[in-house]
C-alpha cells in the first residue's frame, strides 16, 4: 500500500509524475502532429475537390468581408482560375454549421459540402445527405435566384421540419457568395 506522506516525498512524487507525463505527451504530440495535419489537409482537399470542377492546383488565402475573415482556396487548371472554394459558417440549430462552398468564376455556386455541424440526427443532419436539399445547390445562380428559404420569400427548398438548419445553410452560402465578390474585386485591383 501507499507510503506515509511527508512534504518532501509529496513534492518529489508530484513533480516527477507531472514531468514524466508532460514529456510523454510532448513526445506523442510531436509523433502524431504530422498525421493529424495530414488528416485535416486531406479533409479540406476532399471538400475542395467535391465543390469545384477539375483543377490541378489550389492556393489558400483569406479575404475580409463585412468585418469577418474568410479562408478560401483558389483553384486553377493549367494556370487558368476555375473557381474558389470558400469556407463559411453560420449558427444552425445545434451549433456552428461550417460549409465549403465552391463558386466558379462566373459567380455560380458549383457545389457545397458540409465540413462540420451539430445538427440533430434525422432532422437537420440531413443537410449532409438529403439529395433534394443538397442537389439544388449545384449550379445555383445567386444573380438570378434569391438566397433565402421559400418560407422567407427566397428560392431555396428547405429540409422538411428543419427550417432553422436550412436557413443557416443558406446564410452560410450567401456569406460565401459575398466573400466571393470581395475576392474577385480584390483580384481585379491586383490585375490592373
Amino acid at each position: 500500500m501507499a507510503i506515509k506522506s511527508n512534504l518532501k516525498n509529496m513534492v518529489i512524487v508530484l513533480t516527477a509524475v507531472c514531468l514524466i507525463c508532460s514529456s510523454v505527451l510532448a513526445g506523442v504530440y510531436a509523433m502524431t502532429k504530422e498525421p493529424i495535419d495530414a488528416a485535416a489537409r486531406e479533409k479540406t482537399d476532399k471538400a475542395i475537390a467535391l465543390v469545384l470542377p477539375a483543377f490541378d492546383k489550389t492556393e489558400a488565402a483569406t479575404v475580409e468581408t463585412d468585418g469577418k475573415e474568410y479562408r478560401y482556396y483558389s483553384a486553377s487548371k493549367d494556370g487558368e482560375t476555375v473557381g474558389y472554394a470558400v469556407e463559411s459558417s453560420a449558427t444552425g440549430f445545434g451549433g456552428t454549421l461550417s460549409l465549403m462552398v465552391g463558386i466558379t468564376v462566373d459567380g455560380k455556386v458549383y457545389n457545397t459540402s458540409v465540413l462540420s455541424h451539430g445538427e440533430t440526427p434525422g432532422l437537420g443532419a440531413k443537410c449532409t445527405d438529403d439529395k433534394a436539399f443538397t442537389e439544388q445547390w449545384k449550379g445555383f445562380d445567386p444573380s438570378v435566384k434569391t438566397l433565402a428559404v421559400k418560407k422567407d420569400g427566397g428560392d431555396v427548398d428547405a429540409i422538411t421540419a428543419s427550417t432553422i438548419t436550412s436557413r443557416a445553410y443558406t446564410l452560410a452560402v450567401s456569406n460565401a457568395v459575398d466573400a466571393f465578390k470581395s475576392i474577385t474585386a480584390q483580384e481585379d485591383v491586383n490585375n490592373e
Binding site: 506515509k4 516525498n9 508530484l14 510523454v24
Partner: peptide, 19 residues
C-alpha cells in the same frame, strides 16, 4: 501505487489518467 504518498494519490492518478 507503492511509491505514491497517500495524501497526493488522487492528483497523481488524475494526472496519469489525463495523460
Amino acid at each position: 501505487a507503492p511509491v505514491v504518498p497517500d495524501k497526493v494519490h488522487i492528483p497523481v492518478y488524475i494526472v496519469v489518467i489525463a495523460t
